[in-house]
């Protein structure tokens, strides 16, 4: 037998000639921009907090009311992002894979939570889910209360987070060749196996990215939540609201102390997800 022409994969690392120079210029701009827009305001929060002693700080950020708000904020954001990861993939699937009348309209609807002032979303959701609202009225006899409960917060955060998943998964799905599914089918895989072993693994990295974005958005969300949550201390009060409350009482140090905690936790969370994703999805893959 003849040996096929020896082919080697592309070298792992090459020094590439770039058409557009300017690493120094662009990195400099990036750092300046990030400093002015992101880092400076954030460090102001840290500096403000420095007005507190360590004990005062600790007491501020660990009072029962504050601890309850952390649980609610992060818990509801996680639950909402998880729900979106599931339904968002289905929405993206439908939008990419099927042609149906009104597809363009549905596609545009997905972006609406991005564009709508969050307060408007909050008011609309509250009107719907309040015990007197259309949906609230139907759910009330079943003993399900949505408005003014953690469930309502979850609904608001799900609404806000949906576009993140859909818009990150959609392009990946568009790139996914139908031949992959056909290949799996000719090899004897059932539909469920094709979905579980071929389609979903290909969508997982994008879903993860979307999940992280939705989670980050959920943690920081304020406008839509304050209307539907009812803001009862220890029960339906989110951390961003607590911060605003403290600000209104001119307790700037207290407010920034909470802000610092949120910042650190959020950053750790986002960074952690990113590291995890890198480690999980690209075990020694250089090709891409």
């Amino acid at each position: 037998m003849r040996t096929p022409h020896p082919e080697s994969p592309p070298p792992l690392r090459t020094r590439r000639h770039r058409v557009l120079p300017g690493f120094g210029l662009t990195l400099g701009t990036t750092l300046l921009f990030l400093s002015l827009i992101v880092l400076l305001p954030l460090s102001a929060a840290f500096i403000r907090t420095a007005g507190l002693t360590w004990d005062e700080f600790w007491a501020q950020v660990t009072s029962p009311r504050v601890l309850a708000s952390y649980r609610l904020t992060f818990g509801a954001a996680l639950a909402a992002a998880a729900a979106n990861a599931f339904f968002g993939v289905i929405v993206a699937w439908v939008l990419v894979r099927y042609e149906f009348p009104g597809r363009k309209i549905v596609d545009a609807l997905v972006d609406l939570p991005f564009a709508l002032p969050t307060a408007v979303a909050g008011i609309a959701l509250t009107a719907l889910y309040a015990p007197t609202g259309w949906i609230g009225r139907a759910l009330d006899p079943l003993g399900v209360k949505v408005a003014y409960t953690p469930l309502g917060i979850w609904v608001a955060l799900t609404f806000i987070g949906l576009p993140f998943i859909v818009r990150t998964v959609q392009p990946v799905l568009e790139e996914l060749e139908p031949e992959l599914e056909e290949a799996a089918a000719t090899l004897g895989a059932t539909r469920l196996q094709t979905l579980a072993r071929v389609v979903l693994p290909a969508l997982l990295p994008a879903t993860c990215t979307g999940f992280t974005l939705a989670l980050a958005r959920g943690i920081g969300e304020y406008g839509s939540v304050v209307f539907i949550s009812g803001n009862m201390p220890l029960r339906t009060e989110i951390t961003p609201l607590l911060i605003v409350t403290k600000l209104e009482q001119y307790d700037y140090a207290g407010a920034t102390a909470l802000a610092v905690v949120m910042l650190v936790v959020s950053f750790t969370l986002l960074f952690g997800v990113q590291v995890l994703q890198r480690w999980f999805f690209s075990p020694e893959r250089h090709g891409r």
Partner: peptide
């Protein structure tokens, strides 16, 4: 397709 006992090779490989 899965039970016909065919092996199909696609032009653009369609590898997973």
């Amino acid at each position: 397709a899965g039970r016909r006992g065919v092996g199909f090779v696609f032009q653009h490989y369609a590898l997973f």
